[in-house]
Design a protein around this nucleic acid. Sequence first.
DNA 1: GTCTATATGCTGATAGAC
DNA 2: GTCTATCAGCATATAGAC
Lengths: 204, 204
Amino acid sequence: MSTKEQIVEEALTLFSSRGYQGTSVKNIAEAVGIKDSSLYKHFKSKKEIFETIVEEMARRMEAMSHTFGLPDDTSMEEAALAYGGITENELVVLSKKVFLFYLQDPFAGRFRRMLTIEQYRDKEIAAVYRKIYMEDSIRYQTVLFGDMIRQGIFSGTDARAMAVNFYAPIFFLLNKYDGGDSNVEDGLEELERQVREFVRIYQK
Amino acid sequence: MSTKEQIVEEALTLFSSRGYQGTSVKNIAEAVGIKDSSLYKHFKSKKEIFETIVEEMARRMEAMSHTFGLPDDTSMEEAALAYGGITENELVVLSKKVFLFYLQDPFAGRFRRMLTIEQYRDKEIAAVYRKIYMEDSIRYQTVLFGDMIRQGIFSGTDARAMAVNFYAPIFFLLNKYDGGDSNVEDGLEELERQVREFVRIYQK
DNA sequence: GTCTATATGCTGATAGAC
DNA sequence: GTCTATCAGCATATAGAC
């Protein structure tokens, strides 16, 4: 890994726990193992490091087919559009994948925490945060559940409300099991419970 | 309002948008209209201001009967325990009250934003955040929906999953309509939609 | 309880040697 | 592309006059 990549890496770790203002250029340089002055050969300012992180994440999200945030989110859509529909257990497995991705993916988890911290000081950051974790996710899943209602896999009259009922508990548990010493396995268990309740409610 | 109260007031406003580290003692003093050195006659350190805010909020939350966060949250419980049960419209009105309280209450809204920002840098803050906005809320509502299932107001097998299905969308929309220029009325509309869907799903 | 003055250290950033 | 040296500004906090 190049020094520039290391800087981005360590900066993201620090920004996601202490925040942008709570992290000094010296902190980042020390984590990388160079002097703070050397860091300016790679980035012209602290702000440029932050912007590079945001651009890098946008690039990675774009690389995934939809902004649901899944490396393989097409599997759900394919399942829904295919003959047999999606089973309850498939939905459980899929939800856990989304959950663990946003929580533990080496980049995505820290990035989400960073945006959570920084959203209130900058309108642009707030817009990015809402787009990724709220608007895009809900929009995509609304289409998905709309399809599944039409195919008779689920009952329901309001695909959007259904999408929120599916995604909001994931978002809620993500924020709950986000801290330092919280147990991820408890989170997965609670998530499974919610997904099974979701299926019980909406199944035909 | 005393100078000390003004300091707490202005500090909360600044902490909730720029964060603790992003706010200087001078910023706070300027907002109050005094010199930064004068501020130290009221608080011995910047950290003490922060701690005073947290204690003040804990005191206010305690003053309300339950940590659901409602000034008059008993109304729902009473309704549930009374003869007729709670109507759909009553649940909509109640949800909007909770939503607007956490979003716009002069103290609660800024306090929630402050904890959201500061949760990752300190385990104690994270614990307070989770207790207030997750554990207490869910625990209280689990009891509530358990009662309502027993009384035959709602169908359901898992009161806890039901509580999460009721509260998670509120939490999600709270975070969504939290930013600077987002429209609160849109949030209320979306909330009402979710509550009506909730009732549709769980009504007997 | 406000002010001015001051101490001390850290901040982001630059210049220039190697 | 790393280092040392240096800068001006701002941070938290204290001392002491009024």
